[in-house]
Amino acid sequence: MGIIGWIVLGLIVGAIAKLIMPGKDPGGILVTMLLGVVGAFVGGLIGKFIFGTGLNEFWSLQTWILAIVGSLIVLGIYRVIVGRKAVKH
């Protein structure tokens, strides 16, 4: 899968992660979708280390599940980090 495929996948799964984990995010949907791009990468790494396979084909169910899980992880970490900063100020 090429870099454009990664970006498109990340943008879509970022929006899906936002639907799965609703709530207020600093930066809104655009930041959430960009976090989805990072999450797709993280999901690929998780798949590679745990299952021995990462993100393969754009239309593969495995690719989408790994990317969504990675996006949920990144979104959760982002909320924890940004939430702590908001409480301190």
Rank of each mutant, 00 (worst) to 15 (best):
M1Q: 08
M1F: 10
M1H: 09
M1K: 05
G2Y: 03
G2L: 02
I3Q: 10
I4M: 12
I4A: 14
I4Q: 08
G5M: 07
G5K: 11
G5E: 15
W6Y: 15
W6H: 15
W6M: 15
G10A: 06
G10D: 05
L11D: 01
L11T: 02
V13A: 04
G14T: 06
G14L: 07
G14R: 09
A17K: 06
K18A: 15
M21I: 14
G23Q: 03
G23T: 04
G23E: 02
G23Y: 02
G23D: 05
D25Y: 12
D25N: 06
P26G: 11
I29L: 15
I29S: 14
I29K: 11
I29R: 09
V31S: 08
V31K: 14
V31D: 10
L34H: 03
L34A: 15
V37Y: 01
V37N: 07
V37G: 11
V37L: 11
V37D: 09
V38N: 05
G39N: 11
A40V: 05
V42P: 00
G43L: 05
G44R: 09
L45D: 00
I46D: 00
K48E: 13
K48G: 01
F49R: 08
F51N: 12
G52D: 10
G52K: 13
G54C: 05
G54Q: 10
L55C: 09
E57Y: 12
F58C: 03
F58S: 04
F58V: 14
W59S: 08
W59R: 01
W59T: 08
L61A: 13
L61S: 07
Q62H: 14
Q62Y: 10
T63R: 02
W64V: 10
I65E: 00
I65Q: 02
I65H: 00
L66G: 01
A67P: 02
A67L: 03
I68Y: 01
I68R: 03
G70Q: 10
G70F: 04
G70M: 07
G70K: 09
G70A: 08
L72Y: 03
I73M: 13
L75N: 14
G76M: 06
I77K: 03
Y78G: 11
Y78V: 07
V80K: 15
V80S: 08
V80W: 10
V80T: 13
V80C: 00
V82H: 04
G83Y: 01
G83V: 00
A86N: 07
A86V: 07
A86G: 00
V87N: 10
V87A: 15
K88S: 10
H89Q: 11
H89A: 12
